[in-house]
Design a binder for these strands. Sequence first.
RNA 1: GGAGGGAUGGCAGAGUGGUCGAAUGCACCGGUCUUGAAAACCGGCAUGGGUUUAUAGCCCAUCUAGGGUUCAAAUCCCUAUCCCUCCGCCA
Length: 428
Amino acid sequence: MLDPKFLRNELEATAESLATRGFILDVERLSKLEEKRKSLQMTTEELQATRNAFSKSIGQAKAKGEDVAPIMAQVGDLGSQLDAKKIELAQLLEELNSIALSVPNLPDASAPIGKDESENVEVRRWGTIKEFTFEAKDHVELGENLGGLDFKSAVKITGSRFIIMKGQVARMHRALAQFMLDLHTTEHGYTETYVPLLVNEDSLMGTGQLPKFGEDLFHTKPATEEGQGLSLIPTAEVPLTNIARDTIIDEADLPVKLTAHTPCFRSEAGSYGRDTRGLIRQHQFDKVELVQLVKPEDSMAALDQLTGHAEKVLEKLGLPYRTVILCTGDMGFGSSKTFDIEVWLPAQNTYREISSCSNMQDFQARRMQARYKASDAKKPALLHTLNGSGLAVGRTLVAVLENYQNEDGTITVPEVLRPYMGGLEIIG
RNA sequence: GGAGGGAUGGCAGAGUGGUCGAAUGCACCGGUCUUGAAAACCGGCAUGGGUUUAUAGCCCAUCUAGGGUUCAAAUCCCUAUCCCUCCGCCA
């Protein structure tokens, strides 16, 4: 959510900036609503002030034992007038709020302007792409031949876009997650965190999945009149970041750096034809997530750092990648600046997204009132939140299978994973 | 699942219809004293919103949340959530 004051005062500039990411802000409607809000709020508060004054004098008169009937008469229909205004105001505020929650974040000045992913800008490449002396197979073929990937059974048991892994492939999947967690906790300073996989609507609102992107989620418990619904997490970013919701963190405790390995659940609504083959786009996949809560002045440096932490995983695994900065038109809803890391997949002869690292600035923090207090500051201020995949485990498995394949269909286990696999050097 | 008890400022804890945004203590910040520190003493100390050049004033809201009663609600009523105790069940 953007700063309502900023939105109000810099309406034109905001609309212009949002237009670069393809969001059309209805300036006319907003300014009309805002004008109405202003006058309505003032008259409502005036009525309240009048009523409060009457009530107070009734109390004082009673204390002195005076007759309160004359004052009571003066009150008249103030109450019903006030009620009507209150309802009107509440409806208006509701409308303004729902607009505010649907407006994406402002892109940072350092994000390139562009309309879609074709205008993302590569910032660096790492690693040497291996030349195969044979025709490289894709992970589906490799995994099925090894008896490690069973798409058919998963379809029977649940449906498409689910997977069953077995044997050494399953073990490698586990090893990858362990390796990533260990790297981030021992070398990058993150605190390992275990989180709920079901989250309530307040949390989803806080990180920005709601109100706009509810159709991307699996809802396990519907919302009722009183109670909130629960949904499966689409990413550990939701529970991790929401730890800070409605809290004030001491400046001395910043930055907060959290990591968690969790399954993620996405309905992938609207992507029916895309990536139907293999593990690339699943309804359920594992991910090691990185989250940082930092002071505003530190957030851009933290984004570079966090992106580097994700890249390090690929470097240790010896997987070639490139890093791109997303253009304004391709960025996620809450992000001000995003780096995507793309790993080399030989069978597809291309780089595929394996991590997305974003600086949300105060966009999420404002929604969830996540704040910090500096010792010399009078008031708490909003934090900046960042998150990134470090990495998507399933896609990393794909990359290892494909990049480390041998001509006979066996897979060489990357050095760093061997301690996690009982010293195993070859899957075959 | 059954029975009961709770939820108040950073923390502890008063407050059962009217000058209560809320006593008191602790913590914290500033000052006096002191070579310095501690103690003691004095003062300050919630958040959000509106208006405004203003983090000055003024106004509104907030005692878990949402409804209700009333001229007036921390206080009374209803609902939800969470916590605690006991019983049952359970990894």
